[in-house]
Amino acid sequence: MATGTAAAGLVRACHPEPTAAVTVLSALLALRLGHDAATLVLVVAAVFTGQLTIGWSNDLVDAGRDRAVGRADKPLVTGRVTARTVGVALTAAAAACVVLSLALGLAAGLVHLLLVGCGVGYNLLFKRTALSWLPYAVAFGLLPAVVSLALDPPEWPPAWMMAAGALLGVGAHLVNVLPDLDDDLATGVRGLPHRLGAARARVTAVVVLVAASVLVVLGPGRPPAWAWAGLAVVAVLAVVALRGRGSTPFRAAMAIALVDVVLLVLRS
């Protein structure tokens, strides 16, 4: 029972939703770019261990703050898993990430390690500054490059794809922080969303995510009809996100991000 509880705590502490989302996005991009099965598995494994590294380091760094505000959803606060266990898992994930990343090739490996470094840098430093958006912009902008540089021969993705990824990252940061603004402020965290305030952060998130949508639809050339339809869906969701009440704006903004991901994969 104790082992099962610790395992469940490790899963919760790795931030499973964003970990799964980024890993699946990398897999879809790899499929779209025509990677063979072996390279596809390697891309997924490298990205997955990188996301575990980011997620577990986040919960370890924030454990004191989470206890201060009584975060019952955090396993390090509730005792479902110990800091030592998370630390061991983090070390294993980081080591595996280095090996798997470099196995993709030197260019793809170094770019992916820079991406993971951005995530860890956010946890350690940038989260508390006005530049909290920067690691997200760099990391999401580099994700398509990790996948395309793993091709044989390696190639950089088009500029529009990296720019769209960066915008998507900034939007994801703003949306992700919104539910925790009060807890963050109570423990001294003042990233960009906190400085903007809830209302302006929400508007900024919607604007950035819509900009990503427009770039994905128009960037690669003449858009097909389904791409215009996707952009129309984004426009409707943007209105809901700006005018809705309660949790509706948050869900609508998340839906825009999801549509952006689908459009990015299909237009790649």
Rank of each mutant, 00 (worst) to 15 (best):
A227Y: 00
D183V: 10
G105H: 03
L134M: 13
A6D: 13
M161V: 09
A252K: 01
W156Q: 07
R32D: 00
V98C: 05
A255G: 01
G191M: 14
T91M: 13
G197S: 15
D73V: 03
V203Q: 15
A7S: 12
A164E: 06
G119P: 05
L266C: 02
G165L: 01
C118S: 09
P18Y: 02
D180P: 05
V203I: 08
C97M: 03
L125Q: 08
L33R: 11
G191R: 15
G169T: 11
C14M: 15
D182T: 11
V111C: 06
T3C: 08
A21F: 06
V170I: 08
I256D: 01
W56F: 15
A6C: 06
N58V: 10
G188D: 08
A211F: 04
L174A: 14
R222V: 14
E155G: 14
T3V: 05
Q51W: 14
T204A: 15
K127S: 04
V177I: 07
H173K: 00
L231N: 03
A166R: 12
V77S: 08
L266I: 04
L76G: 07
D152I: 03
L131A: 11
A20I: 00
L100A: 08
L33S: 13
A172G: 14
V81T: 03
G87E: 13
V208S: 13
V207E: 10
C14H: 07
I54M: 08
A20Y: 01
A94V: 12
A229L: 07
